[in-house]
Simulated scan of single mutants.
Amino acid sequence: MENLKKTFLYDSHLECKGEIVEFCGWALPIKYEGIIEEHEAVRNAAGIFDVSHMGEVDVIGKQAFDFVQNLVTNDVRTLEDNQVLYSMMCYPDGGVVDDLLIYKFSDEHFYLVINAANVEKDYQWMLDNKGDYEVELSNISSEVSEIAIQGPNAEKILQKLTEFDLKEIKFFHLNREVNIAGVKCLVSRTGYTGEDGFEIYTNNEDIKIIWDKLLEAGKDDGLKPAGLGARDTLRFEASLPLYGHEISQDISPLEAGLSFFVKLDTDDFIGKDALVKQKEEGLKRVLRGFEMIDRGIAREGFEVFAEEKKIGFVTTGYYSPTLKKNIGLALIDIEYADMGRELEIAIRNKHKKAKIINKRFYKKNYKK
């Protein structure tokens, strides 16, 4: 662990008896009490996550809007000030550079939140595509720490630490002037769990104050610290994609079923022509949800078969703590993708039966 990057909450994780693992070059907790316990806390009460490893890029300048609109697949014109948009950046061939959140402060100032695994790559991609746009790009990832508090009790708990009425922050909106436990923070009503909640951004030096105060404020409301393990099972149940799994350089947003976030009828953006062509010619493979019929958990990379033919692979597979079933997502040939079709998945060299189900495994409980 000596050579790994540590967030400013690393000692706090040790104090909470977190089990530390390597993740994207960071030393982060995979769990504290246990993945299932933490998962259920978020579904039923609340969980608090250290997500300081995420990346942040400031885009400032006269043509900030034009630059971002060209960079991403979604339509930035729909954003009002202090609103958040989910989108992807694509390569010219339609593969995904990364998915990200776009925070709009104004037409001349955007704040892009990117995945920890891709910070350097993404920032270089932005620089490479800056062209003649009148903008300044700043990778401020090392200056920002971030906590996510998620779950049905998230608002109640966080409200104890601020005089600001959190009900004013609607789903996928933000406020940059929220005072939490005496610390000025950017707070957005966003998250990666399928539950209501907030993401809190502030300076590195004050993040421990917020972490400690939240744990204290939430002790009677079921709040638990939660690690990377629960973060993954929660996002997976809510059918939220993970870069390198459901989307990647080799998997387009359309194949991943994310066409809602790809606006092909708007301005040009990098990768648009390839995605228009892919849509016109018809998809050859698609992402589908599945449930195991036979015993066994189908993990990432396991091969999927139909009629003794290999038709794809598993992108994510878990035991679902909420549904109490072994489920997964797989990218498969479209001719075998009908709902209810039985498939086989190679688990430990044995073909185990599964069937295709709706990939919206869990109904999201966002507060609009």
Rank of each mutant, 00 (worst) to 15 (best):
T316S: 15
Y243Q: 00
E22S: 14
G191N: 05
Y86N: 06
S138K: 15
A27I: 09
M126P: 03
T78N: 12
A117D: 12
I48K: 05
S138E: 14
T190A: 02
K263W: 06
I48P: 05
G197I: 04
I114M: 14
V262K: 08
T316C: 07
E136L: 12
I48F: 11
G301F: 04
N358H: 11
V72C: 07
T78G: 04
A238C: 12
A64L: 09
I200C: 03
I140D: 01
K208I: 07
E33N: 11
P29F: 12
K355D: 04
G18Q: 08
C24E: 12
V57F: 09
D338K: 09
I210P: 02
D212H: 03
L186C: 01
D268S: 12
R189L: 02
E37I: 09
F23Q: 11
D267G: 00
E40H: 04
G296P: 08
A354G: 09
I357V: 15
Y133F: 15
L215Y: 05
V135R: 02
I20S: 08
L283R: 13
L4H: 04
W211R: 01
D107R: 06
T78C: 05
K160C: 00
D132Y: 12
V262T: 15
N139H: 09
F110P: 09
K309L: 07
I20T: 08
A117P: 01
D265E: 14
N175T: 02
M339E: 14
G18F: 06
E199H: 01
F172I: 03
P92C: 03
S12R: 15
I356P: 03
